[in-house]
Deep mutational scan, measured.
Amino acid sequence: MASQGTKRSYEQMETDGERQNATEIRASVGKMIGGIGRFYIQMCTELKLSDYEGRLIQNSLTIERMVLSAFDERRNKYLEEHPSAGKDPKKTGGPIYRRVNGKWMRELILYDKEEIRRIWRQANNGDDATAGLTHMMIWHSNLNDATYQRTRALVRTGMDPRMCSLMQGSTLPRRSGAAGAAVKGVGTMVMELVRMIKRGINDRNFWRGENGRKTRIAYERMCNILKGKFQTAAQKAMMDQVRESRNPGNAEFEDLTFLARSALILRGSVAHKSCLPACVYGPAVASGYDFEREGYSLVGIDPFRLLQNSQVYSLIRPNENPAHKSQLVWMACHSAAFEDLRVLSFIKGTKVLPRGKLSTRGVQIASNENMETMESSTLELRSRYWAIRTRSGGNTNQQRASAGQISIQPTFSVQRNLPFDRTTIMAAFNGNTEGRTSDMRTEIIRMMESARPEDVSFQGRGVFELSDEKAASPIVPSFDMSNEGSYFFGDNAEEYDN
């Protein structure tokens, strides 16, 4: 783990906690998980779902989305002020799938948001429990990260689609708070800032007046979040320049895209947490497990152990491969979309394939898809080993990566060399080191050039047997250095459309 220093740990961010010791953190995270579980059980009762239907990941996603929508204050306010045809701002819903006479049927349900809020609060001892809501947002974000390569979004903001390893959390809503900021990748933060800068260039009043003052505060806050992700002084200094700019424009845009590229080699610290679907927490609570009393951590053995003992089902389209669908969801559960496939294969105990080789589309089923041909199958979400999630980018030494994705962002704290394609990355730096950030740029390029592919990161860190909950005997895996390590390699994943 990167030293926490003055930073709060993510469990504290996750639970809005002030400084807590490890036991208190485990208890408050457990409380959050228990609340999600209780809410899910109650919703299944309301909807009269069978046990099997309640364990269907598509039903879980609909129920999670309903509660997130019920608590989305800004959108609710907007919907009330701008009524649109056929949208009731006070209601929320989605597809629920039921097994009827041996076939899967889709039923569109509609609930009062007020009623959903009441059920959620009741499951969370009367609190709004925003930490639990954020947790579900991060699960949705991790699922998107594993399912889609955001080529269009990258290109629109002047970045290269091969930089997708920097895009963790790119679909997280803005209201996801400190826990959300911690899991956002460098590219995601750059993209958010670039969008602001572009608006400022096109709209003279963007930075002016009372609204402009708020915009400015948001801009500086985002700059500080991004600065905190960088691990070298030169990158941090460049972020200070971007933040202090009187009138952010093209120079800042250039600096930010430069920094994003540099992060492929001088990786930023991005938190990883295993956020599971509500249909995993519900049955665990129903079986009598007391998360608050037992304590829970999002970055240790607990999620692995929970998945070892969970039964989750998914709808499967006619030509999809259930094992591939399982891999997709497994990666999402562990926030591992940008991790090295060699490491993932070792931990999972079966070969993890790149996205383009998977015969599976996303987990969600569109409303126009034919239910007649839908089957369902068990998702295999178990693992051979477990490993500690990392909050750091690993040290800054790398190795060759593949054509589709030119770097990785480690999820697990496991000893290995970190793949990246130096030639491709360095070719993108057209040696432009003039301007006010020239000395920093020169320094950053120097550090990137001296990074050695064969150097090892996370020295001495290994994986653990599932029986080793105290992480007492690390097993340090050895990897084939020459092997392909990137998930979005030469990829044809669908595009994420909101």
Rank of each mutant, 00 (worst) to 15 (best):
M1W: 12
A2T: 08
K7T: 05
S9C: 08
R19P: 13
N21D: 12
T23A: 12
R26I: 09
G30H: 04
M32Y: 07
G35A: 09
F39Q: 01
C44G: 13
C44I: 14
E46L: 14
L47E: 14
L49G: 00
Y52F: 14
G54Q: 10
I57Y: 02
I63G: 02
L68F: 05
L68N: 05
L68E: 04
S69M: 12
D72P: 02
R74T: 07
R74A: 15
R75T: 10
H82E: 11
H82S: 14
P83F: 04
P83C: 08
S84N: 15
K90P: 00
K91C: 02
P95I: 12
I96H: 01
R99N: 03
R106T: 13
L108Q: 05
L108M: 10
L110V: 15
E115D: 15
R117L: 14
R121C: 15
Q122M: 14
N124R: 03
N124P: 00
T130Q: 15
T134V: 14
H135V: 08
M136R: 00
M136P: 00
I138P: 00
L143H: 07
T147F: 04
Q149C: 10
R152V: 01
V155K: 04
R162H: 06
M163T: 14
C164S: 12
S165A: 07
Q168F: 00
Q168E: 06
T171E: 08
T171L: 04
P173S: 15
A179T: 12
G187F: 03
M189S: 08
M191A: 02
V194H: 00
R195I: 11
R195E: 02
I197E: 05
K198P: 01
R199Q: 15
G200Y: 02
N202E: 00
G209Y: 08
E210C: 05
E220A: 11
G228W: 11
K229L: 10
T232G: 04
E244R: 00
S245A: 15
P248S: 08
N250C: 00
E252M: 05
L256T: 01
F258E: 13
F258K: 05
I265G: 03
L266V: 15
S269D: 08
A271R: 01
H272T: 04
L276E: 07
P277G: 01
V280P: 00
Y281V: 09
P283W: 09
A284R: 09
A286F: 05
Y296R: 01
P303R: 06
F304T: 01
F304G: 04
L306F: 12
V312S: 15
Y313E: 04
S314Q: 07
I316Q: 12
E320P: 00
H324T: 05
K325G: 03
L328H: 01
M331A: 07
F338Q: 01
K348R: 15
V352E: 10
L353G: 00
G356F: 06
T360W: 03
R361Q: 02
V363N: 08
V363S: 12
M371W: 01
E372D: 12
S376P: 13
L379M: 15
R384C: 11
W386T: 05
R391C: 06
A401R: 08
A403L: 08
G404R: 04
I406S: 07
I406F: 04
F412G: 06
D421A: 14
T423C: 00
M426S: 00
M426F: 06
A427N: 12
F429S: 09
T433H: 07
E434A: 04
E434S: 15
G435M: 15
R436P: 05
T437Q: 13
T442Q: 01
R446G: 14
E449F: 05
E449Y: 09
S450G: 11
P453H: 10
E454N: 14
S457V: 03
Q459M: 08
G460M: 07
G460D: 01
F464V: 05
L466Y: 10
S467M: 14
K470R: 13
A471V: 10
P474R: 11
I475N: 14
S478A: 01
D480F: 04
S482G: 11
D491V: 09
E494W: 10
E495I: 04
